[in-house]
Every structure is written in structure tokens, then in C-alpha cells.
Design a protein around this nucleic acid. Sequence first.
DNA 1: ATGAAAGCGCTAACAC
DNA 2: GTGTTAGCGCTTTCAT
Lengths: 330, 330
Amino acid sequence: MKKLSPTIRDVAAAAGVSVATVSKYMNGAQRFSAPVEARLKAAIEELGYRSNPLARSMITGRTRAIGLTILDISNPHFTNVVKGANRIALRHDYTLLLVDTDENQARERPLIEALAQRVDGLILSSRMSDSESKWLLDLGKPLVLLRHSDTLPIPSVGIDNRLATYMLARHLLNLGHRQIAYLGFGQARINDERIRGARECLEEAGLTLDVYDAHAPTAHAGEHACSRVMLGPRRPHAVICYNDLIALGFMKEAASLGIKVPQELSVTGVDNVPYGEYAAPALTTVDIQSEKMGELAMQKLIDALAGHADTGHSMFEPRLIVRESTAACG
Amino acid sequence: MKKLSPTIRDVAAAAGVSVATVSKYMNGAQRFSAPVEARLKAAIEELGYRSNPLARSMITGRTRAIGLTILDISNPHFTNVVKGANRIALRHDYTLLLVDTDENQARERPLIEALAQRVDGLILSSRMSDSESKWLLDLGKPLVLLRHSDTLPIPSVGIDNRLATYMLARHLLNLGHRQIAYLGFGQARINDERIRGARECLEEAGLTLDVYDAHAPTAHAGEHACSRVMLGPRRPHAVICYNDLIALGFMKEAASLGIKVPQELSVTGVDNVPYGEYAAPALTTVDIQSEKMGELAMQKLIDALAGHADTGHSMFEPRLIVRESTAACG
DNA sequence: ATGAAAGCGCTAACAC
DNA sequence: GTGTTAGCGCTTTCAT
């Protein structure tokens, strides 16, 4: 277990060259005379030498690692972001360091600060407001945000949240619904945008939106909220949920309450997580291209690392996915 | 962006002490005289000093990072493993380095070798056989395997796969089923164990098991395999799937084929992923405590790092979760 | 094309 | 308690 690995000096000695030569060889920095190259090759093979990335990083100041903080890896949306980011990282020979902050806002800052020291750049998903996020700029590392920031000069990636819920509201309107509720997650920074999208659409039709809060972005929270929404004084005919997880839980509980979806109630989510398709009934939702978001965020960061500055916001376009959880108002 | 951070020497100068003193202070190694401590504190605060973990690691030989390789983060089973592992890592002030090998066996070895150099220990989930895995021992790092190995002296965690499918077969038998098929994933090392469990149970009842292969551990693969299984010459009344994802896809496609689950066909999975509960119908499965597996794997590794050797295999006990996708044979 | 030497930022003896 | 010093394994001028 403790057979300590050979150092560059061991290789130099074995090959009868200097450490500088070995270093250059390892980095493919230049060409070598045939005999030297042969001896180098042999010595490295022989000793099983692999250069120590830590020592290397200390000098070059680059780690070839990228940090990614997410709120909850259990959420398939974030899983897909990770998937996409990882794919691009791998392709460029970067390693992904994942930190799941577990929706724990207090731990966020120290966690990010510690992570920042071990990576060349960071992709961040956070619930912090812009004003709480100023210290990010002092990290001295390239960043990409997984949400839009109006005031921070940090590149970001996201979708048009307003449009996403606008589309859902329009879809429900087209189906003849008039009593539409929104079941949100107030702690999410994008919740307001999603409310606004749905509300705008309804107001154009002279209708109002009833807003509820699920307190968590999870299926369990959706289940919990269902009776409050459906058995309260203003029973809706259609519910737009903050995300698919909440929608999935909501639908399940609605079934328990004896409410038929979609005959008596239409339900929609946002995210297009892979399991909405297998739910009962299959969930109508808006695809937000989570995996592509991860890919682009990583690509932007890698570009930034390569010196291509970019402080813009890239917005993916939402796409409505109509399945079986929405139907004409009965 | 490029404001380079202060070094230990800057702090030493600012506080009028030696670098050694600063180092000791940072590591909380001992007590200090009041004036020195005060100046240290002030200087550190003033400069915003944070010690460079790379330089530190190079000397101590410890990185406080743990590597985790998984086959596919999209699979909720692995997601849960990551979740559990991350929780324990955080608790012990370790960072998790995640590598998703994307089921790509060729890339596995170089990826793991590279990862090994940046961490104190590794948790591995792999499709490699024991004989292909010998080189792992040369990594010189503590390891934990997410599967049992008979021949490698490496601690591991897993579940009793034989028992898992044995229980499912028994459950189906109890419901009166006689024509039972297994839809597996041959590339998984544990597939054979799962086949064996189901087969043993059936053989005790004088029955045989029809075995099919889904070629991938995904919902999509389950969908694809469905017609082959259900419309072939030996149509089963119950299907035990390798995992929940395959089962979810299988159920969906069965519905498309006009086959009613569970009236005409019982379907089961393995893993108890969070979305089986929201499927149509809710999926009968076996809970394998994925999150606990991740927790225990990480705990074992951290124990090993602390010098507590342990080369044993820890086996979690499967638990049958009966939902709505299984019913008495009609 | 190759090598000598000076560090990167820090810790770990060992002095005082 | 506090300081001095010698590296950790590597890259990088700058000679040759």
C-alpha cells in the first residue's frame, strides 16, 4: 500500500539525464535525440512513473480541475447538468469536482471558498442573491453562474423562465382552463420569474393567478401541498408547478384524494426530468435542456480559462412537452 | 481577476513573526502568546489570507479529497450513492471528486489512475472483473469497492443480490405466477447473482426462469426490450427486471402494447429509485439502500485513512417494497 | 538538445 | 513559544 511512487529524479537517474529533460519530455515540450528519448521512454515505463499533478499545479498555478456546486444532486435536473458539464470537462481533459451543498445556505460560502483553491474555475448554482454574492469576485477565479445575474459581471447560463411558464399558461388557456394556480418554491431565485410568466399570460386573458408555495423543490413537498391547494376555498382546474418533482408528488397525492388527472385537474411541471415520462399520467412539462446547460456552462468556463472572455448570459429556449397530465377543461 | 493571493510569507511579514509560526497558527498546532496571536489574527484578516492546500498537500501527502467513480450519474441509484458518500465526506471535512465514467470501460483505467493522484483514497464502481482489476492494488491508495470481490483484498459494500431477486420471485410465486421472466443487463457483474436468486427460488417450485437481456440499464432499454419479451413465443405473466429503470421503461411500453399492468402482467425492479413511486402503476421493487451504501463506503474509506484497516465486505439487506405493479395472476 | 539552479507555498524537524 | 532551515516534486529561465 505504501510503495511510494517514483519521482522525476528517479527517472532522471535511471535514464541518465537531468530532471529538466524529463520534465520537458513529460510535457511534450520539445523534440529529443533518439537515444535520449528511448532511454526516457524505457525508464518511465520501467518505473511506472507518473508525474505528480500537485507539484505541477503548484508551479503552473493550474490544476486542470473545475469545481461545480449544486444544490441537490438528487434532483434529476441537476443530475443532468452535472452529466453535461462532466462530458465537456472530460473532453478537454479536466476533472470535475462536485460539491453538493444540500440546499444548505449557511455552508455554501466556506464550501465554495475551499473549493475555489483546488480548481481553475467554478460553475455555481446557488440561492444567494446578487448582493450576497459579491465576494465571489474576490475568489480570483473564472466563474460561470447557473442563473442570470443583472448586476454581477459573471457569465451565466440559464433558460427564459418567464417564457417557460408563459407557455404553460397559454397551453392551459388554450385547453379552456380559467382557474389556474401556481405552486412555487419561494426560496428559488427564479420563482418570481416563473410566477411573472404565468401571471402575464393570464392577465392578458383577464384572469388572475393563485399562488401557493411548496416550501421545497421535491416530490414530497408536492405531495404535502396538494390537499392545501385542492381542498382549499379556491380549487383550481389546472396547476402549474415550480418543477417536475413537485408536479409528480402533487399528481400522486391528487390521485389519493380521488381527483382524476387530467379529467378533473391538469398538472404541469418544469424541467422535463427523465421520469415525468413514466409517471401516471405522463407529465406535461417544459424542457429546459438541463444537460445542454451543463455543457455550455462548462464550455464557457473552459473558454474563459483559455483567455476568451465572455461575461454574457446565454439563454436556452424552453420547449413545451405536452403529455397526458393536461387536458381540456371538463 | 488576477489579484494573486497572499502567501504565508506576506502574513509573517505583516505580523512580524516567522513563517513557521504562521503555519503552526493556521494548523492550530499549539498555543501562542497573546500579542502574537492578536497580530496573527489581524494580519490574516487584513490580507484575507487562506493557506494554499496544494502546497500543504505536497508536503503532508494528504489532499483531504476522496475520489468516487461511478458508471452513470443519471441513474438515480448512483445519484443516491453519491448523495450518501458526499454527506459523510462533508462531515469529515473531505471533498468529493466525482468521475462519471459514462459506462465507458476503455476510459476507466486512465481516468482512475489520474484521479488516484489527486486524492487520498477512492471509492470505485466498475464493471471490471477481479482479474482485470489487479492493477488497482498498485495505486497505493486505500480503496473501497461498490461490489463484492472474492479475490481482491479490498473492502467493499453492496447488497445481497441473490436474496433480492429471490425475494421478488417468492413474492410473484405467492401471487400465483408460474410464467416468470427475468430481463437482465448482462454486462453488469451482479447480473449473474440476480439471475441465480430468481432461478433458485423458481427451481424450488419446480419452475424455470426465462432470461432476456436489455443491453443497457436504462428505461429506454427497458422500453425497447418489452415487445421482444412480451410478444415472443413464451409470454410471461410476470417480469423481474434488472433494475427499476428497465422496469419503468418496460411498463410504459407494455401499456403502449395494450398490456395491462398489473392485471395481465406483473413487473418488478430492483433499487427502489425515488421515481418508481410516481410511476404508473407504482413500481414493486426491492430497496437496496443506495444512499446508505454511499455513506458506508465513504465511512469505511475514511476509517481506512485513519489507520483502521478493514478488508471485509459489508452487505446490506434488501427489503421488498410492494406497490401496485404486481398482482395476483389473473 | 540538454542541464544547472532557483524557486512555487508550505510543513516539519530542530534550535533557541 | 518562536525562529531557522531544509526540502516536498516539479517547472522554468538561462546557460551551454
